[in-house]
Design a protein around this nucleic acid. Sequence first.
DNA 1: CTAATGACGTAGA
DNA 2: ATCTACGCCATTA
Length: 110
Amino acid sequence: MHPFRGDRSLYPRIYSVVSRIPPGRVATYGQVASQAGLPRQARLVGYALSVLSNLSSIPWHRVVNAKGMISSRSGEKDCEALQRVLLEEEGIQFGPQGAISLRDFQWYPE
DNA sequence: CTAATGACGTAGA
DNA sequence: ATCTACGCCATTA
């Protein structure tokens, strides 16, 4: 299915950060990487999330790219649609280009 | 051994 | 605003 990419031993640190994103807010891949102590490794965050189940208790759907858009996977198009629905259910609004206003919805941890 | 491949980001033009 | 190149790096071909 989804082969592991990058260093699997670093995944838990990423999940720890993602789990802290509150409902109704989003974080970017780069932001999560930095907070996990892995600056400039945004891709690794994407790999870590890619092996999660859609039903995971980890809020994978609250991570978007630096443009505030849902990043495209290879295949798995329903997953992208699901992400949007989950975010809308939390009150996050999408612009006409399918982008979220990071200014309004990005998570700024204390 | 080299090249391509990613749920990405950023600097520079 | 848009586009191109890199940086990133384990895994795969």
